[in-house]
Design a protein around this nucleic acid. Sequence first.
DNA 1: CCCGACCCTGACCGATCGGTCAGCTACCAT
DNA 2: ATGGTAGCTGACCGATCGGTCAGGGTCGGG
Lengths: 175, 175
Amino acid sequence: MRRHILDAALRLFAHHGFKGASLQDIAAEVPCSKASLLYHFAEKEAILTELLTPPAEGLSALNGQLDALEGSRAVEPAVTGYVGLAMQFHLELKIIFAELPQMLGHPALAVIPPAVDRLADALAGRSREPGALVSARMVIGGVAVAVAGGVDVPPDVMRDELIRGARRTLGHPHS
Amino acid sequence: MRRHILDAALRLFAHHGFKGASLQDIAAEVPCSKASLLYHFAEKEAILTELLTPPAEGLSALNGQLDALEGSRAVEPAVTGYVGLAMQFHLELKIIFAELPQMLGHPALAVIPPAVDRLADALAGRSREPGALVSARMVIGGVAVAVAGGVDVPPDVMRDELIRGARRTLGHPHS
DNA sequence: CCCGACCCTGACCGATCGGTCAGCTACCAT
DNA sequence: ATGGTAGCTGACCGATCGGTCAGGGTCGGG
């Protein structure tokens, strides 16, 4: 049941945003009563945090691996790791980008923006040059939008093209 | 006064989303009364449509120019034109990407997603190959996120880096 | 001096929001 | 049979939402 609620909430949050999808909407999608949602979850926000915990942990684990690498050695695993996470959690990613500003208010979600910053640092090859910083942000946003937007290609092709596009963006076309 | 309202609404919509920013919030930001907002604008949504009209018209005008060009000749002006629009309307762009799904419901805003599709087609050099389609979407999202996210570089440097990054993503590094 | 037009506002409306609560049902070990 | 527990729900709550309305303030032109 919790799984059904989370699935329905994931779809609705991704399509209409966190504030745009009401508990009534989620209950109608499950389907169940609104009170049943609040029996399984303490509050509406608890549903969101539980939805975003897996991708947040995935990103945190990726960052842990990337921290061991230095300089440009981190770029390639950062690209493949991020593309993999983005494709696995594409709906969650949509929520994260749409709701990113108000996440700073909720402690449980506040870990995400800094984790994105750490990923950007790895994608930039630990460089502080404006070109590297901008390119890193472009990869983060570009992969997210390409995955979220409806480009109709098979998943394995999409994954390959995302990785190659990201490498080109960063100026590391080889590998 | 209308200008003050639009400015306040632009900031709040960009930070909290359309549904996340209430008329009370906007009135407090202006500052004025909530009733005053609805004297100048028929409804809350009218504020949003008026905010998004200039970037929508700018994108439409850009698409008009790009339609005259064919194949890969459209790529370079598409890149520079889109980067220019993105930097000019970076807050509006944030709203557009966060609120993109529910725009299909409102006729006044429904023109935006197809316009984005036309831009993506130009960025892809009118190609139907998966690689070109994915790269075009990556440029659209990458530029938007890089502009919206707080990369602390001077505007002219940002503009230059965005154009170069987009060209690399598309595999057109020359020019 | 008055009038109409334009701005602006407090008070109010129904609807919907997130959240609470008492109680119903189904099940299971004793 | 019985007591307890887990799952679920309808009814309800205060707060806030977008939106309406009657009226007050402030002008410039006749």
